[in-house]
């Protein structure tokens, strides 16, 4: 998402310059052409095809009849899809805020010139190097009441200790959030740490002279300076939210019951397991609409308004 929205206007700029200075602009435009074509044909083309299929009664193979909004009516009467939609909102909000807060704290912590910084940085970033499948399986074991944390605590002398979120339909989605934050906080830390290193140390000295407490300095001075990094981290984390699938498959398989189902899994199951392309593509279209409606104001603010203001 990020790369598309960033590349598109630049290509336009290059083409415009190319008209003035053909010798320099044309090769660049030519070099960008394949990417632009791939984006247009593969991404946009497949999106349109998906939307078209969502208005058909396709089952195993695509069919090109027209059933109107029948699939959408079924979709919004479907318990599982509604649960999925609710879950992705819960996960999205908690995961992104959780990663940002934890990542920021870790970055500030590492920025204190602690000893063994390299080792700590590696440890914190390490979870991100693991696939969601490994993360999911590991956390499934760790949180399983009969195998992991609960059993460990009970065996070591706390017989009343209970932590059964993983098998509790009301709480299971939060275990996915925990595993997700564990996985994503390190990356957020790395991005924010890079930003912290760019903050002029004179600012800190000035703040000290003015008697500003450390927490106030980070909150009111450093955090605003880190805005571009926070935006980058948020965008990266948000893509993780939209495509959330493998973590759920590895950790809970959508269970207990349907309590941890997510939209991407709904789409995958209906496309490939249940031979229901019509319903699956309808769900995919709803996901697309949701993403676009969140992204559109941002793209508008970032590119359209800024460019309009400058010219």
């Amino acid at each position: 998402m990020n790369s598309i929205s960033i590349q598109a206007p630049r290509a336009g700029v290059l083409v415009r310059r190319g008209r003035r200075r053909v010798g320099r602009g044309l090769p660049a435009a030519l070099a960008l052409l394949p990417t632009a074509l791939v984006v247009l044909v593969v991404y946009v083309g497949c999106m349109l095809w998906t939307v078209r299929l969502s208005f058909t009664g396709s089952t195993l193979l695509p069919r090109y009849d027209w059933v109107g909004f029948a699939q959408y009516v079924r979709l919004f009467a479907n318990d599982r899809f509604l649960t999925s939609a609710g879950n992705i909102v819960i996960f999205g909000i908690l995961f992104i805020t959780g990663c940002l807060i934890l990542g920021f704290l870790l970055a500030v912590f590492i920025d204190q010139n602690v000893r063994g910084e390299g080792v700590l940085r590696t440890i914190f970033l390490y979870p991100y190097a693991m696939s969601f499948i490994v993360t999911g399986v590991a956390w499934q074991w760790f949180l399983n009441p009969g195998l992991g944390l609960q059993k460990l605590m009970r065996d070591t002398g706390f017989p009343g200790f209970t932590f059964d979120w993983l098998v509790n339909p009301d709480m299971a989605i939060y275990t996915i959030v925990i595993a997700g934050i564990w996985h994503g906080a390190g990356l957020t830390m790395a991005i924010l740490l890079a930003g912290l290193r760019g903050v002029d140390s004179d600012l800190w000295k000035a703040a000290r002279v003015d008697g500003v407490p450390a927490w106030r300095y980070y909150l009111s001075v450093v955090l605003p300076l880190l805005r571009p990094m926070v935006v980058t981290a948020t965008v990266l984390l948000a893509t993780g939210v939209v495509k959330l699938y493998d973590l759920v498959v590895a950790m809970t398989l959508g269970g207990p019951g349907i309590s941890t189902e997510v939209p991407a899994k709904f789409v995958m199951d209906h496309l490939f397991e249940r031979n229901n392309i019509g319903l699956g593509t309808a769900a995919a279209t709803i996901m697309l609409i949701a993403v676009v409606s969140i992204l559109a104001p941002w793209v508008y603010a970032r590119y359209v308004r800024e460019e309009g203001g400058r010219v």
Partner: peptide
Amino acid sequence: IPNFSGAMQDAVTQYWNTPGMPAEAFVDK
């Protein structure tokens, strides 16, 4: 058909994992 089997699976897993859910509600699903 796989579509119906899948929908049944959703209904069964909901019923099984919701201890208070009466059999009537499952039948409705």
